[in-house]
Write a protein that binds this DNA or RNA. Structure first.
Lengths: 247, 247
DNA sequence: TATTAAATGTGAACAGTGTTCTTGTCAAGT
DNA sequence: ACTTGACAAGAACACTGTTCACATTTAATA
């Protein structure tokens, strides 16, 4: 029988069997993760994983439905790692806010910086998320939650500043068409309630710039073009913060 | 013996053999391109290509050193298609300029729009360029030239406006550190000579936004977030044009 | 023009891959 | 104690990229 639905993460494993199964699953994911980190997703091989674990390739099918399922789990793991990273950075920035250290613009920089640092440290995992969608593919259901966590973390300094009335308004205010307002509605409603639409649009644009900058750097597209992508990244983030009205 | 260096593209094929070889090479590239367009690069299979062409898999090695070499050729083709697209768009925009139709901002939009349209029509080829670098990988030497052509095309409306003195200056002018100025020097010198550094930085940021926006859309990362990415793209490009000082 | 030499295509073979199925073994629940 | 289920192994199948020895056809040369 194919792998049962993963053991409920809520309750601790009761039987010894469940415990060893959980350990085994974790171990498989660990070496699979190492392989991806070293050679990239395209080179991921069930047989080589099995070799590293000293077991038969077919045994892996007790834990994962196949290569694609394993890859999906790794993708999900990458999303969660990214989300954790973003949340930690936001947390630290918020702590700084409580100590009244630095301005809103400085706090805004924390999450983008953390994302970039993480991406540079784990380029292949960044690729799992923002690279070419794999053929076995499709966004696993579970990725939307950590992806949303990243968004929330990114936006936290902003809502803080907005709530405190420290957000500079546009002058003159940008016009946003009704169509664009509608297109952006999910974000307006779900992520940034009460925020002016121009700001929401700018935040989405900021996200675009962040992902674009990191991907261009991680995937090696700045060659012979820009010598220190970090400086460009910082400048871009500062410009975006300025446009949004943080200071 | 491995494939000889490709027949000199400068002179027409003299012998019948050279002609049929050229046709064969083109045909292989054509069906390989179809396969990539349909199933993506990861699924590219020499044997299936050989089947489609009714020949033995080993015969392909007379034309390409192997799968990676074939993929490299396809990547190069994608770069060139992208460059052609960008240049056509720039050309049309320039024609509009001669007829004095629309402002600089409108002209600026032409190339980004063309890139996005092309990417949406050829998502897998976009992935070949801006997606996860393939394992067989490394940027083929020949890609830097078409990549530069894209950059030149993108920037053409800008240098036109600048030369005509229609480029609004920053007020107040953004400060650019010496380090950033140095990091950006290749672009300043090679692509935008005579352009103020702040502008150069903004152009690089614009490029970041363009690639980021298109990749996010093509790779399907706007799900449940933005309903009409096109509107967001337009807004982002308009904002960038405004920041650069086009009008 | 006859004869070399090179270029091209074939088919078999090797090593690697994901996946399935049958078989055996061991722990858990009745 | 016994039965059921999970687990692991190994063989097998259908693929993949790649190499090689071998024909065959074409071009260049003596």
């Amino acid at each position: 029988m194919p792998p049962t639905t993963a053991a409920p993460a809520t309750s601790a494993p009761r039987t010894a069997r469940e415990r060893v199964r959980e350990e085994m699953t974790a171990e498989i994911l660990a070496v699979a993760g190492e392989h991806v980190a070293r050679d990239g997703a395209a080179a991921l091989s069930l047989r080589s994983i099995a070799r590293d674990l000293g077991m038969a390739p077919s045994a892996l099918y007790r834990y994962f439905d196949g290569r694609d399922a394993l890859l999906s789990a790794l993708i999900l793991g990458a999303y969660e790692a990214l989300a954790t990273e973003a949340e930690q950075a936001a947390e630290q920035a918020e702590e700084g806010a409580r100590r009244d250290a630095g301005g809103d613009a400085e706090r805004w920089l924390a999450v983008p910086r953390a994302l970039r640092t993480w991406a540079l440290a784990h380029p292949h995992q960044w690729g799992l998320i923002f690279g070419t969608p794999v053929p076995g593919y499709q966004a696993p259901e579970g990725t939307v939650e950590p992806y949303a966590r990243v968004a929330v973390a990114l936006v936290r300094p902003l809502v803080g500043a907005h709530a405190a009335g420290r957000l500079r308004g546009d002058d003159p205010p940008h016009q946003v068409s009704d169509a664009l307002r509608a297109a952006v509605e999910p974000v307006s409603a779900g992520l940034l309630p009460g925020m002016p639409v121009e700001k929401v649009v700018l935040v989405l644009q900021a996200w675009t710039t962040i992902v674009g900058a990191i991907s261009l750097e991680v995937f090696g597209h700045w060659r012979n073009t820009v010598w220190e992508p970090e400086l460009l990244f910082e400048a871009a983030m500062a410009q975006v913060a300025e446009a949004i009205g943080l200071r």
